[in-house]
């Protein structure tokens, strides 16, 4: 698998909109069968990258090969083998659930009868069989999302592109979507997704890149990224209001890194319990202590900063 030709290969890929550079020279390789994630805050360039990979947005610079072809010249031939689940559902509300799949199948030259069978099979897969003849409008957000995913699979694609697949869904709906995507992955479908949910990335991605300001700031498996950019454990200390700063000064030199937030202090350490013992030994009595493992979220916030992006 590691020697296989990459399905997606980008070298110095750039996307500009006028003076604004949305994607600023990224190198990416996606191999067959893997689930690859683009993580980043809003405006990091994830969606612009996905649109270039989806062959609907011509690159402004650099090199991009998808399934060994050129997205500008061979757009339709590549898109015939891709499945795309956009960030916002764009189903046809006037058609039924089933018709949304069968009409879309015709864009791929799939004969009507095969399209009907395929639609039935996909509705079963995304658990919408009972709603097959219902219109799209009254469906819940989670159902619409699953239908959009089913539509992306109608052509039996080799690569499925998912732009923030679970944004806006409730926890039950998210878990159902993850479970279905995981099954696709098990069947050998290559998944490429963008997300700003760390749990989603940890659940689904074999490999991911963290993007910020149009550039890739880190790359690797979720585990490797945590090892590389964070410590094994994090201690969260809360002190009485307003005393935070005073305590923070005394914690210097404890663990690899101390981060003072308005409501708590984070100690990045190898051994959380040992660090707590040290804190107590210093005579400090925090209002609350939480020892937890480092997560991708710590890596993400460390790399892309805590400033709010609107």
């Amino acid at each position: 698998m590691t020697t296989a030709q990459p399905l997606i290969q980008a070298r110095g890929l750039v996307k500009r909109f006028g003076d604004f550079t949305a994607v600023d020279g990224i190198d990416v390789e996606v191999r067959p069968g893997e689930a690859f994630g683009f993580l980043g805050p809003n405006g990091a360039g994830k969606s612009s990258t996905m649109r270039m990979v989806g062959c609907i947005s011509p690159p402004s610079g650099g090199e991009l090969r998808i399934l060994g072809m050129d997205p500008v010249r061979d757009g339709p031939a590549i898109r015939a083998r891709l499945g795309v689940c956009p960030q916002l559902d764009n189903l046809d509300p006037e058609l039924t659930v089933r018709e949304n799949l069968t009409t879309y199948a015709r864009y791929f030259g799939i004969p009507r009868r095969v399209a009907r069978e395929r639609a039935a099979e996909l509705l079963d897969f995304v658990q919408l069989t009972e709603r097959a003849d219902s219109k799209v409008e009254p469906l819940s957000g989670g159902m619409k999302r699953r239908l959009t995913i089913a539509r992306a699979l109608v052509n039996n694609p080799e690569i499925v592109l998912l732009d923030e697949p679970t944004t806006g869904l409730d926890p039950q709906a998210r878990h159902l979507v993850w479970e279905r995507l995981f099954r696709l992955k098990q069947q050998g479908v290559t998944l490429v997704l963008t997300t700003h949910y760390m749990d989603e990335a940890e659940q689904l991605c074999d490999r991911l890149v963290v993007m910020d300001g149009g550039r890739i700031v880190a790359e690797g498996s979720p585990r490797a990224l945590i090892e590389q950019h964070s410590t094994r454990e994090v201690v969260e200390l809360r002190f009485a209001a307003d005393s935070q700063e005073a305590f923070a000064g005394k914690l210097d030199g404890l663990g690899e890194r101390v981060e003072v937030l308005p409501d708590r202090i984070l100690l990045y350490v190898a051994d959380g319990d040992a660090a707590v013992a040290e804190v107590t030994a210093l005579g400090l009595v925090p209002a609350s202590v939480l020892v937890r493992r480092s997560s991708l979220e710590d890596v993400f916030l460390h790399l892309t900063g805590r400033t709010l992006v609107d």
């Binding site: 339709p76 031939a77 864009y107 799939i110 095969v114 069978e117 395929r118 699979l153």
Partner: peptide, 19 residues
Amino acid sequence: MVDVSVAGRVRPALPRVPA
């Protein structure tokens, strides 16, 4: 589930007259 009979017969291509 997805890779049963029908998926194998779905040969994505370009429709003859896309319009």
